[in-house]
Design a protein around this nucleic acid. Structure first.
Lengths: 144, 144
DNA sequence: ACCACAAATGCTACTTGTTGGCAAGTGCAA
DNA sequence: TTGCACTTGCCAACAAGTAGCATTTGTGGT
């Protein structure tokens, strides 16, 4: 049994229905290579079930977001990107030049979390952060 | 002469036209209390000049973004928020409960910047960051 | 003060991502 | 197997943002 099947069954325990649509949507998210847009998920799941509607995708994503099973991030592309949170927390370094995305380990944020907590008495919940900048390759190739 | 007038004149030096629309838009951003949406800017500037179009607002914001005079941030409200960068770099701690916003000093990010640079060889350009979480007041009032 | 022209504006229509209402369908507990 | 609340598909609406284009307007040169 694959990982997201467990998630689905867990959903059922909490009182949500186990519908084929939800399974297919989770399948699509899980089999994507990481961050996926709603439309992409829709397309992928439609391969298995052509009548799946985009609003069902959004509703399911809302549900999974609320349960902290998937994260929603705006990677600056005009649409949100979704990702399974069970893969372990990590964040993204996005190159403005080439658009490449590096995964940054979650532990890098611990010092920041601590200092924010101390200084501002604010408990940050940084689930999924997107940091823009310039990767080394593009930095080297840049004129000037 | 107020601060944003200097900005406007600087614009002119670089070769951009000094139009009343641009002045009013900058006025609106400057006289806002911080982060403002495009529609809000539009409304404010329209008080002075009713024919100002929203697309002019967007075009001007694009221009100012490109020149790093204003920053654009997605504070998770479905639309971007704009802010004068000349006020000094800072970032935002946004409470999920009450919606309150704390300003966080830019220097707090320096350790993170350094470690990202060292570990990932990635030069981050964190102009304006939004961190969600829970402020102390809401944390105290929370049931459970 | 005037002219010419590129830059900028306003208008309109459009795209794209996302949400809402509602009737029909369907898991699931009894 | 039946009932019913939960879900779905459909469709229409929505908001933010963008594009095209004719008209207007700063601005530098005269």
């Amino acid at each position: 049994m694959s990982h997201h099947d467990e998630i689905i069954e867990a959903l059922q325990q909490i009182g949500y229905r186990l519908t084929p649509q939800r399974m297919m949507i989770l399948d699509a998210i899980a089999s994507s290579d990481g961050h996926t847009g709603a439309e992409e998920i829709h397309e992928a799941a439609r391969a298995a079930y052509p009548y799946l509607d985009i609003s069902t995708v959004y509703r399911t994503l809302d549900l999974l977001k609320g349960l902290h099973l998937v994260s929603e991030t705006d990677l600056g592309r005009g649409h949100a990107q979704y990702e399974l949170l069970s893969r372990g927390l990590h964040h993204h370094l996005i190159c403005r030049e080439c658009g490449g995305i590096l995964d940054m380990d979650n532990s890098f944020l611990n010092p920041l979390r601590q200092s924010i907590d101390q200084q501002y008495d604010f408990h940050s919940e940084i689930e999924h952060l997107a940091i823009f900048g310039m990767c080394s390759a593009c930095n080297a190739n840049l004129p000037g």
